[in-house]
Design a protein around this nucleic acid. Structure first.
Lengths: 112, 112
DNA sequence: GTTATATTTAACCTGATCATTAATTAACGA
DNA sequence: TCGTTAATTAATGATCAGGTTAAATATAAC
């Protein structure tokens, strides 16, 4: 994967296990052991996924004793969203039915 | 790469050449030859990038004679944005650290 | 039909990704 | 100090990504 910032962010998000880890961290920080539990893959594998997320800036980590906690850092998601904003006019201009459905639900949450 | 929809979308966006292709297509449809010109890589390489983008639903293609035109399809970007919306409160929380009061009222309106 | 143009497919190479198990490091607690 | 727990690193292997050049396919133009 290219090592520019957006490539690292999108690359990190391209894996379902890593997205699931982020989803878990949305409920609060967690140790590597806790993050490993829900999956059928080994702890070293999770440890590597965490490295990828950390490199993308999507998590930070802090040790307290034996335990190494991961915390969600969402600002790279903001960068990614900002990049996509450039294309918003295209999906809003679309007459596609799926588009219409998704647009509606997005606007619902954005309506502030 | 996993073959679920979000993984294919994020995976497609994880490459700078493919993002540049999308940027070019935002100015209008283009042939493979036209899309190849700005890059220092070969046409077969571009052809593969286009396949990845097509598989992710980010472009559609239509032949007219010898020419095969690619057209931007932005709705997958909307899907990706919608997935990220889930984390918006986190980046807003860190960005607006100094205005916790406002943040709270925004979260209230979002129903989180 | 022959030749030129546009694009894909084939064959191949290199390096990255994602998983494994085994070994190592680090911190804790008796 | 010894044994346990937490996590990473090492070594290995399979598969995928992204590039190349050369060959094949398809349409156009003469």
């Amino acid at each position: 994967m290219a090592n520019d910032r957006l490539s690292m962010i999108f690359g990190a998000l391209a894996d379902p296990t890593r997205r699931a880890i982020l989803a878990r961290l949305a409920d609060g920080e967690a140790t590597v052991t806790e993050l490993t539990a829900p999956f059928s893959i080994s702890m070293p594998a999770i440890s590597r996924h965490l490295k990828v997320l950390e490199r993308a800036g999507l998590i930070s980590r802090s040790r307290s004793g034996q335990h190494l906690s991961s915390t969600l850092q969402a600002s790279p998601l903001q960068e990614a969203t900002e990049w996509m904003e450039r294309y918003r006019r295209f999906w809003e201009a679309s007459f596609d039915r799926l588009d219409a459905h998704l647009r509606q639900s997005v606007q619902g949450r954005e309506g502030q």
